[in-house]
């Protein structure tokens, strides 16, 4: 339970907020979005960026700088969480191994199943990332799947070391390559994250210029960060 008895001031506030929201929502006509900017983007996105997925083109071409800021926020959150939990990659392996030995070991079925699922999840993540400009999906979604793929074996075999040094290198290189692709666009076409490599024909795997490369960079960065976060939280029990 949240609390043993209701909090009357909080309930009163919620009631007032509900009245306010009802008053606001009554004037919003559902289904009649004006979408002046959205209409314009829908008209030119496929022609300008070559991506069939308009959301991906907004995320990585029209608003690419914003996505870079988002990656910075995620990086700060992951670094902060690692710092607070006190897991430096110097002593991550030995200490964690010594502490998690008190847990009962995972069963045979879970171990073999995790082994069986690891390549499957890896392929699924790579597919979702690399088809991000054609179908729903992209770097963030595929990165989450990749993080899960690397966390499942850790759950099955708590003693197996997760190579955090490699994860940090992958994360750093992916972030740097995102910035480098952006700067290459600045040098080539005159603005940050300008589409490079030609747009190609809409709907093919090798199209949309640099968007698949950016998706790959985001996927690797997000995947390594989220996997690092989960492994940092998967520590020993506090007593």
């Amino acid at each position: 339970m949240l609390t043993s008895r209701p909090r009357w001031p909080a309930l009163l506030f919620i009631l007032g907020l509900a009245l306010l929201l009802t008053a606001l929502l009554r004037d919003l006509h559902f289904g009649n979005a004006p979408m002046q900017v959205g209409q314009a983007i829908n008209g030119v996105a496929a022609h300008e960026t070559g991506a069939a997925n308009v959301v991906a083109s907004v995320l990585l071409a029209y608003r690419g700088l914003d996505t870079l800021g988002e990656l910075a926020i995620l990086f700060a959150a992951a670094t902060g969480a690692g710092l607070v939990l006190g897991i430096a990659f110097r002593n991550g392996n030995g200490e964690a191994q010594a502490k998690t030995n008190t847990e009962p070991p995972a069963g045979f079925i879970l171990r073999k199943g995790a082994d069986l699922m690891f390549p499957f999840l890896l392929i699924l993540g790579a597919y979702v990332i690399l088809h991000g400009h054609l179908t729903p999906g992209g770097g963030f979604q595929g990165g989450a799947i990749l993080a899960a793929a690397f966390f499942v074996p850790q759950l099955a075999r708590p003693s197996s070391p997760f190579n955090e040094r490699t994860a940090h290198w992958v994360e750093a290189l992916a972030g740097a390559s995102f910035v480098l692709i952006g700067i290459a666009g600045l040098a080539g076409a005159g603005w940050f994250l300008a589409p490079l490599l030609g747009t190609g024909s809409v709907g093919e795997l090798l199209s949309a210029g640099s968007i698949p490369l950016l998706q790959l960079a985001i996927g690797l960065k997000v995947g390594s960060e989220l996997a690092g976060l989960m492994i940092a939280l998967h520590g020993p029990k506090e007593t």
């Binding site: 997925n53 959301v55 963030f140």
Partner: peptide
Amino acid sequence: DVALAEAAVGAGLSSVL
């Protein structure tokens, strides 16, 4: 797109964390 992100991140990763 958002549905895929919500299913993978919101339902999967957040609950695991």
